[in-house]
């Protein structure tokens, strides 16, 4: 059965990751919160996909779910599948997942200041990862770690490798994280707001470094971010999430030229532009993100949408392909 479906999909053999109808729930004191609700998307080998949305929209949880890192309890993957080259990760045992983490799929996190273990030298942490996934001697792993540090643009890698995380700046630490993430040549990198915690100049450098290495290593990447500018620069495809579900999934050029979902339109509208007339106010999306405990039964965006119709409040629109485009949108009346 599984072989069949894998074969059926093999005609688009370059599909690396396929997430289908993913549902993740968290148990809280006040009830069950559905943080990810029926998310589907695919990623081709070597492709960069931006996962965009406001904080709390489920993008990080989606990233964690791919690696099987949902903290449980209170969280769990309720249904759906996550297939990496035809293998369903949700069906794997913990030891099998461990083999994939850091080797096939790597993840880097938002907070470089706390993401590394403060009591071990960075070399020790990198060598630990390298030797776990590859048959390397200590000496080989040490050399490989230095090489990786050089690749991510750390000066004097042979010296730096002996240092502790607190001796490095935030940007440097994030580079170390990237070096660690890429050291075993993953097929997919999940980058969760990798530059949010850095200052602006460092942000640009780190993003540039990631893109450069990505093409060099030929891996696919999911870039989780709330920064549409970064997405425009780096991604081919963008997925817009809101309250745990995907509202729009389109090639980046399409998305920016013709945003279809009212929410996407609103997001794009709230980016300041240099050319724009100083007098006009930045458009904002009115209203507040609904509480995940009390989601509207219809479209999650209905309360804030200026085009809302009767139908929107009754039934949730499903993500569907728009005719004659490669855009998918979850709206009854897309732009």
């Amino acid at each position: 059965m599984i072989a069949m479906t894998a074969k059926a999909r093999a005609k688009s053999s370059d599909i690396l990751l396929s997430v289908r109808d993913l549902v993740v729930e968290f148990a809280t004191d006040q009830g069950i919160v559905r943080a990810v609700d029926g998310v589907s998307f695919t990623i081709k080998a070597g492709e960069t996909v931006g996962l965009v949305g406001e904080s709390g929209c489920g993008k990080t949880v989606t990233g964690l779910a791919i690696l099987g890192l949902i903290p449980s309890p209170p969280g769990r993957i309720v249904s759906g599948s996550i297939e990496l080259q035809g293998q369903d990760l949700t069906q794997l045992s913990e030891p099998e997942l461990r083999k994939i983490r850091g080797s096939e799929i790597s993840m880097i996190f938002q907070e470089p200041m706390t993401a590394l273990n403060p009591v071990f030298r960075i070399g020790s942490q990198m060598i630990d990862v390298l030797r776990r996934h590859q048959q390397l001697s200590k000496r080989q792993a040490h050399a490989a770690a230095i090489e990786m540090l050089a690749k991510v643009g750390i000066p004097d890698p042979a010296v730096r490798i002996e240092e502790y995380p607190h001796q490095l700046s935030g940007g440097m630490r994030q580079r170390v994280m990237i070096a660690m993430a890429l050291s075993c040549g993953p097929k997919l990198l999940i980058a969760d707001e990798p530059t949010t915690a850095l200052d602006v100049t460092t942000q640009a450098q780190v993003i540039e470094q990631i893109i450069k290495l990505q093409s060099e290593f030929g891996m696919a990447m999911i870039l989780i971010t709330h920064d549409l500018g970064v997405v425009a620069e780096t991604c081919r495809q963008a997925i817009v999430m809101y309250c745990g579900s995907v509202l729009e999934n389109a090639p980046v050029t399409e998305l920016f030229a013709h945003p279809r979902h009212p929410y996407t339109l609103g997001l794009l509208g709230s980016i300041p532009r240099l050319q724009a007339d100083r007098q006009t106010k930045l458009p904002i999306i009115s209203g507040m993100v609904p509480d995940l405990l009390h989601l509207p039964s219809g479209c999650r965006f209905a309360d804030r949408c200026n085009k809302v119709m009767q139908q929107c409040r009754q039934q949730r629109p499903l993500l569907g392909a728009l005719p004659d485009t490669s855009t998918k949108v979850a709206c009854y009346d897309p732009h």
Binding site: R98, R101, F109, A115, N117, D128
Partner: peptide, 14 residues
């Protein structure tokens, strides 16, 4: 519950 524990998990630490 520290971040670096999550990092270590994400890199397959047993």
């Amino acid at each position: 519950t520290r971040d670096h524990v999550r990092t270590a998990k994400a890199f397959g630490t047993p």
